[in-house]
């Protein structure tokens, strides 16, 4: 564990807590893409299967259980909670996220570290996570005024993978022949998708004006 990875995990944890706070306290999911939440639930479900087969540390296991629990809870709130679901703008959240799942799965069947059931699903979860934010970014462009909590949620979600990139650089230079091309390239693609969001987020923060993404 290094400071970059801890910062990344804490940023990820914080982003989910922000979203849970928004949904649980003000019972609203306005501006939040259900499709991105569903993709993330699938990412965690296919990546954290190893909590049944292996044990790394208490931290690792607790974080995996929290990510699994929170992602499915958020999807449940947005789909079935009769107050929250009313604030979900389904006619704006129209990204065809099913078109992301199959190509990621096929790519995982073709490009992976080892051709085993767990490893292919793990690789699939990496590719899917790289593109999972797309429905949310599209929704933000359509939602004229993005509320602060949603903006902060997306920012910290993007920041977590950026910290992970620093973590991979650190590990590359400090550990003997440590390299994970698949993870690194997926992480770079994932972070690159946030580039313009980061630009407008920092700009709105500097000018202390509401966050607005150009259509």
């Amino acid at each position: 564990m290094n400071i970059f990875r801890l910062a990344g995990d804490m940023s990820h944890l914080f982003s989910i807590l922000l979203l849970l706070l928004k949904i649980h306290t003000i019972k609203s999911c306005a501006g939040v893409s259900l499709k991105t939440q569903e993709l993330y639930a699938l990412v965690f479900a296919t990546r954290y299967l190893d909590i049944f087969t292996g044990y790394i540390s208490l931290y690792n296991t607790l974080m995996k259980m929290f990510f699994l629990w929170s992602s499915f809870t958020i999807v449940w709130y947005m789909r079935y909670h009769n107050v929250v679901r009313r604030s979900y703008d389904k006619d704006q959240d129209t990204f065809r996220h099913y078109f992301l799942i199959l190509p990621c799965f096929i790519l995982a069947l073709l490009v992976h570290e080892k051709f085993t059931f767990l490893e292919v699903l793990w690789t699939f979860s990496l590719y899917l996570e790289a593109v999972a934010i797309l429905p949310q970014l599209v929704l933000l462009q359509r939602t004229r005024n993005v509320d602060n909590l949603t903006g902060h949620y997306v920012f910290f979600l993007g920041a977590y993978r950026s910290f992970y990139i620093l973590n991979w650089i650190y590990r590359y230079f400090t550990e003997q022949n440590y390299y994970k091309w698949i993870t690194w390239i997926s992480g770079l693609v994932q972070t690159a998708l946030y580039a313009d969001f980061f630009y407008y987020y920092v700009k709105s923060w500097r000018n202390s004006e509401r966050l607005q993404l150009p259509a």
Binding site: N60, K64, F67, N167
Partner: peptide, 10 residues
């Protein structure tokens, strides 16, 4: 642990 590729990161 070399039978399953070891993923220590979240």
């Amino acid at each position: 642990i070399n039978d399953i590729t070891f993923h220590d990161e979240l």
